[in-house]
Design a protein around this nucleic acid. Sequence first.
DNA 1: TTGTATCAGGGGTAT
DNA 2: ACCCCTGATACAAGT
Length: 721
Amino acid sequence: MDQTFGQDSVPVSGPLDKSRVWDVKPLRRLVPVFPSAPNSSSSSAPPGAAPFFCTAPFGPFPSEVSPFYPFSASVGAQGQPQQNASFGYGNPVTAAVPITSFRTPPHSTAQVNGDTGPSRSSRGRVQSQSQGSFGDEDGYCDSQNQGAQFVSRYSMHIADAEVNSKGGRRKNKPQKRTRSGRDINVTLPDIDVDSIVNNILSSYNLMEFDTVRRTDGDRDSVGYILLIFDLLRRKLSQIEDVREAMPGVARRPDLRVGTILMNKGIRTNVKKRIGAVPGVEVGDIFFFRMELCLVGLHHPIMAGIGYMGLTVNLEEESVAVSVVSSGGYEDNVEDGDVLIYSGQGGNINRKDKEVTDQKLERGNLALEKSLRRGNEVRVIRGVKDLSTPTGKIYVYDGLYKIQESWTEKGKSGCNVFKYKFIRVHGQPEAFMTWKLIQQWKDGISLRVGVILPDLTSGAENIPVSLVNDVDDEKGPAHFTYLASLKYAQPVDSLEIFGGCDCRNGCVPGDQICPCIQKNAGYLPYTSNGVLVTQKSLVHECGPSCQCPPTCRNRVSQGGLRVHLEVFKTKDKGWGLRSWDPIRAGAFICEYAGQVIDISKIEELGGENVDDYLFDATRTYQPVEPVPSDANGVPKIPFPLIITAKDVGNVARFMNHSCSPNVFWQPVLRQSDKGYDLHVAFHAIKHIPPMRELTYDYGLPDKAERKKNCLCGSSKCRGYFY
DNA sequence: TTGTATCAGGGGTAT
DNA sequence: ACCCCTGATACAAGT
């Protein structure tokens, strides 16, 4: 990571005049770099500057909208299933089945499991199925689901599902037996996690990983696996939201999906190894232990110490290969390059057992051997993060060596092993960057190179820093900050849409809510505001809905959620990155600016190129993993084109990359007056702090001026538009 | 929930 | 008698 922090950091403080416009330089293009403007001082506003313009995130919405061609609300219905389970942009994914049709034909589960070889979980299911009378759900039933209460709830869900699935097949479960042996006539919903997963996986042509990649990963395969994992996990969460604790749906989707992928061999670096893991880079972040497992960074699913047997001179011994320091024990993590790691065992973390001295066995023994042997050990540091449900993010902090070990009395008074880990030199900063950012936020240390602490002057709910620690350029060229999209005229709506009536916010599973119905029956976002899957169109609640701004179906209207900074890149002008980690699917920002007519572009043509165009009508490369039948055509209700040349938000600084980490999602907000189509940016994968945010600018229909691409990706096309 | 250690038993081979 | 492999089982474990 680029960690050049200059010396001339003078924090700009105090309230900024909102009418001020600073003369800064736009460099969204990669090449060529603009020459410096003469009066490029960020702190002095030129006289007669345009007034600062800002719209509140929730409206009022413009009453005038441009007359694009009428949009029929049935885009999804007439075209591909909207709920395609793919991140691939605009891929129709015919093989990806809409969520409402994820239904298992009777006995297909056995088939599926048979394909993938025996495994503990699948064996259990097959067995329970072969018992006959209960059908395949029983493998997942637990006692709590057998009461009459649940029965009635299920029936409700089924009725709802029926409405929603438009004739999708469903099995009838003739009988369900209660614990007391009483038989109840009940129709169970047949949500089968395995078939959901299989449907999605087959749409990717990815039922299994080839052996080579399973043994040794690379960047692509690691990315692939993590993408699939989180996509499936979000999908399961989405279903679980609607059908609480029902059989067949995991209460811990992460474990459930992890198990399935492990059994299917959709994992990599399966063989344990000492040292670096191919495809995983220092600084990579993870949100679940399962992810560490799937990419081969740390094999134990729970335990903190990973070790392997090593035979040297006919003598076999266990050596440690990886440790996770996540706060379960009393580790010392104060120093960024040193880690005092506690040994395992001794019932330190068990409430039901008496604390004892730790023994020199298992992981402790392996660490001891690694100390003697001097082998490198991978260190994954757990970082507190309140924005995640688990409250933890795992940061891969690279290789360490164990310098010494000792025992000491822990808080409980029993002996605890301690191991002193020293970070191997010459690795990119990872955990250190996190500590640094925390210090910037706490005001303990100053971010070097800050030109403006908040270039939005309060237009956003979170400040956006303007930073240059590369050279002495004082900022991008003048523009007016606007937090949202500005329509010149309303887009006429043929359909009268009064909005929903969910006064406390739209609730998953509410089959009456028209907004949820428009999204094929499911809220498009998970409970923490993460987009479940890329869709041809997301229908958000609009101005005429009764739900509050905090409604789960208004994610893109809620403004920024992470602390962004506009920074000067080494060779691509200005760029955008985040101080906060961003998880896959999370909303980042929308593309603000002025909506313009398509004819405007043609006028521009030739010389007067607008470098701040967002053109939704371009052809976009599908986001990886590439589904087999992607055609790259987005499904939007009208040809949206936005210019952020004079007026825009942080999104105008996002550079192009041929291997992007951000994608855009069309979002429709509807009212009785008309339509507002917005462009929302979401993370493709987990993005560590300070990594540049990029998206694919797409390919225009007509030849426009090409620019040389400097994204540096192995898949770089060499140019972009 | 999984990974790991441990043990019992079967089958093969060497002494 | 011994080794190696396999399956069963118990149990620990920084979810």
